[in-house]
Nucleic acid binder design. Structure first.
Lengths: 166, 166
DNA sequence: CTTTGTGCAAAGCGTTTGCACTATT
DNA sequence: AATAGTGCAAACGCTTTGCACAAAG
């Protein structure tokens, strides 16, 4: 009945763009072309991305030419607005959609750098238990399980035993 | 009977220094004064530290003056040798002892930047379960629970209600 | 004596910032 | 018209690197 399929979208009343505009107005910030183009573009697909990838992909749109500085500044605002969530991976900052997505964590493949999402209620429970033990007030957590994803493991195996059937 | 007190030292047969020397020799690398001074100094206390803190604290020893570059290079080797473990926190790389310490994770206080260690067997089990579900081959994980530690929470409370007894 | 390690200073990389100009309000 | 945002290029903080000299094997 209820939505128990992990990582399915949460129902949200307004679009990311609408929410961002709301956020901007509530803070007396301006609704600029650059900010609108960026939210729209970012929420067109549900990928993980870093600042450089975003600058590149926005640059490819015929209409837009948004500066590096503006992209970085807008990313901060989107995080602030609760639309994006940031994490640091191998030195660089990586972003993912927060608005409209449930709390989750990641498996990180060190061969192909892919991020696989998963949700775990147990983890949330564990987090609370540990925090209680230490009189710690939790605001969030970040779990990254690293290793090799199924596809990369297969590729590697194939290299070692070329006669394997696929 | 067995050591079930979380985060107590594991019994190890050789000192960090001995182990590092072993590692260096097995790789045909040289056992230099700088490398020895650094292992010794790092394993004198069980703190978390970053490269800059290490450079500073080593600089204070009357005898030694080790260059920034050498410190960075040696830290990489110590991680490689399994003596140290690195993680990225707020942009900078932070190190902790790995040799002689059991697997554990951290509570990170965002007020005072302190790291509190904790160990959880459930977490390891959870990690395996999730990985199995995704055909993922795990090599490790990193969980950081962020929030405010007991001391900082108290300080903050005290500010808000100055009549509180300590 | 050969070769690896060190120190220095310069370069690199991702991110941030100061400032004159432009756009939103 | 007033003010916040943008683009540019320069600055930043941390880390890495090229190279001549020093030290270990």
């Amino acid at each position: 009945m209820s939505n128990d399929f992990a990582l399915e979208s949460i129902e949200v009343s307004s679009s990311p763009r609408e929410r961002f505009v709301e956020y901007l107005q509530s803070r007396g910030k301006r609704v600029t072309q650059q900010r609108l183009q960026l939210v729209d573009h970012i929420f067109e697909s549900h990928d993980h991305f870093d600042a450089d990838e975003l600058i590149l992909s926005v640059g490819k749109l015929s209409d837009s030419k948004i500066s590096r500085a503006t992209v970085y500044r807008t990313l901060d605002e989107l995080v602030d607005a609760g639309l994006l969530r940031a994490m640091t991976l191998t030195g660089r900052r990586v972003y993912e959609h927060d608005y409209g997505y449930p709390q989750h964590d990641h498996l990180h493949c060190k061969k192909c750098d892919k991020l696989i999402e998963f949700a775990s209620d147990e983890l949330v429970a564990l987090r609370e238990a540990v925090a209680r033990e230490h009189g710690f007030r939790v605001t969030g957590h970040r779990l990254i399980i690293s290793g090799v994803c199924a596809e990369c493991a297969q590729k590697q195996n194939r290299r070692h035993s070329p006669l394997d059937l696929v």
